[in-house]
Design a protein around this nucleic acid. Sequence first.
RNA 1: GCGGAGGUGGCGAAAUUGGCAGACGCACUAGCUUGAGGUGCUAGCGCCGCAAGGCAUAGGGGUUCAAGUCCCCUCCUCCGCACCA
Length: 834
Amino acid sequence: MRYTPSEIEPRWQAVWDADASLYAAEDVTAGKPKYYVLEMLPYPSGQLHMGHVRNYSIGDALARYQWMRGFNVLHPMGWDSFGLPAENAAIKNNIPPREWTLGNIAEMRVQMRRMGLSYDWQREVTTCLPDYYKWNQWLFLKMYEKGLAYRKQSKVNWCPQCATVLANEQVVNGRCWRHEDTIVEQRDLTQWFFRITKYADELLDGIDKLDGWPEKVRTMQRNWIGRSEGAEVTFHVTGTGHTITVFTTRIDTIFGATSVQIAPEHPLAKEFGAADSTLQQQIDAMIEQQKLAKEADALGAIEKQGVATGKFATNPFNGEQVPIWIGNYILADYGTGAIMSVPAHDERDFEFATKYGLEIKRVVAPNVDTDDLALPYSGEDEAVLIDSGDWSGKNPLEAQGEMAAYAEANGFGKATVTYRLKDWGVSRQRYWGTPIPIVYCDECGMQPVPLEQLPVLLPEKIDISGEGGSPLSRVPEFVNVKCPTCNGNAKRETDTMDTFVDSSWYFYRYTDAKNDSAPFDSVKANYWFPIDQYIGGVEHAILHLIYSRYWTKVMRDLGLIKNDEPATRLFTQGMVIKNGAKMSKSKGNIVSPDEMIAKYGADATRMYALFAAPPDRDLEWQEDGVAGISRFLARVYRLTTKYAPAIAAHERREKKTHAGSFAALTPEGMKLLRKLNQTIAKITLDFSGRWHFNTCIASVMTLMNEISASEVLMDGGAIAVETQTEVFRALTLMLAPFAPFLSQELWVLLGNEGPVFRASWPVADTELAKEDEIEIPIQVNGKLASVVRVAADASEDAIKSAAHAEEKVASRLAGKTIVKLIYVPGKLVNIVVK
RNA sequence: GCGGAGGUGGCGAAAUUGGCAGACGCACUAGCUUGAGGUGCUAGCGCCGCAAGGCAUAGGGGUUCAAGUCCCCUCCUCCGCACCA
């Protein structure tokens, strides 16, 4: 019989599609241990791409394996379905966003089913539907109540392409995360923010415990949070009532401060500029320069420039007057927007001071013997303070705490911590997102929409032009509303929420997807959480993955869940590339999954995605490789179906068929069973540990080669039907995580019933797996001379004499003296000669 | 510049604890089969060499009986961060 995936796959797909219970997770009362495996939900663009295929093939293999290992598996899927492409499609093709999106979802769901992915579709979550976004609004209001959602005016990132604001996390190299070629602008706007900074320390400290996450992601998150311990010190501006507070991590060097530098956007700069129009012009130029540099993501590249204000400030530690400068390299939105400049001990300050001829005053010296007294010197631990008043002679690290305490005691400073992390701006001036449930009343001011009035529905009839502000603001029926407090005329908030809000908690909704009285039932969430294995692309390392960690902590503090982190283990799979480059439309190197499936079948396509490289590495898509997998599956099919009738008739369904029949086992059968059990052991190990599916599949291929080589023996009766049963049964089970359609087909042909992935994973018999003969390499001076074949339990002496008996060994030993002989039991012999 | 991951045949890769480098697959070569057309099977396939043998895991050095694996130096590729005081 010929292997025809185009016949087998649709047939089983129809069976599976008709049975919603097939992949359903059991409820929380199931007596089994739970296992929550999750792949990141896709944006429904309408077409699955190879990155998805790879991501889902990994997750599906794991889900099926864990089912076979006896776990209660939760393996859901959903749609991150709000977002701009739907609006763009509406503008371009005049299709309503909802219609376009739901159409895409339907198409992609078909593609996923065609791939045979084992999702529990009863738990499907579609974020753009009111039954989901209602809970976004509900959670928003809970956060509003707790002061975690607030409105403020600030400088925000504006993507002209999206015509909306972006959060800091969504700006990549100064460009929009969705539009690589679009430079993000800076604008002043009033926006809604989530107070993620409140959880900065917990988010940072939690990283240490995420030992199931890739180090790379942990490092990126640490960098992003950017915690910096230091101190604030307040300087009085001479002759005015003003003060300047600086932030420094090196308060110990304050006796070496020779100027104070403030950002051009610092409030005092404005003050100074007001009295001096030349100065104001210089300040304006710097502001413009910083803005442009930020937009070009070249803040680090601008040349340091400054302008002296002519004003002075008093160093509260020693009473010295230092000049106040405005520096183009000082950022208004980090720390206090002002620094003290210590040229002797900071590289940047040194550069600046040298350029403008400012005083350089050494206050730290190395306390170890060194000739290198060059400045700037930034040593801390092996150093000592000099010319620093009462702190002279102290170690800098020690002095830092003391000096901050001193500043605090005297009212001009304190120890403090700053973060690079900023609050999460969530307002979007777009239509296709969750409406922010807030109403503005002339009388009562800002009012939250009462919970019982949720959801605030998106109006269906809307004209999206892509121009001029938030589309919702042009829908009077939406905007005009009665104030929930005074019932007077009021207006709705017309911005919608960032779509990253949707994906911050969607995985909780899977645990109770149809709940219409709460986002989910806490009992259910607490049973399933945390996620045991989360799988997705590394591109979300600081976007989705930091937001969802934050959201988990917020929901915990709202009493909804108990876990501190969403996922115990995270796996970031590599990219799928073609001809050395990431697949993309612009490069024209896209390979369509549908085309692959049509040509080779879903099984071969999925299996290739797992075989071609370890899952964490980039994978070069080679169609010839898919053809190779397809040939392999065809061989499995041909051989299994050849013996299946006899095996099925034999009707041996027990796990350990060989138990009573060892005596009847032929040496040839024994050999095959040995290989089988070695393969089971190898795959089981790789599955539980390193996830190297490529080597798993390679070892199944090796087994298959051995079975092929035994065909004559099976035909001739040298390998009995009992043994055949054992071999083909296990082979089929081992293929189930990788090639679900084929293994299901073979499972039934072998006389079994029910889903193959609910059968038990085979257990390796270590006794059977043992070799009775082993090969021992014989080295002479570390170089391979020969290999001897000996009984597995051969004595050291027997192996040594076998080694000496080898002609090639003897010839290399001739005329030499044996200095030493290394024998590693079961591994090798190395004869060292002179 | 800082941090991380990598560099092994023509290609994707394997070598899990320092112990036969290149499993498995692709491509290629030869033969058989098939007969129309990405068929199946058998054998070969790191490099040099007729062979014996030698040389090979980015390059150089070291430790060891033994190094892809451990240590030191250098080079290259990819990713992240980068005036954050």
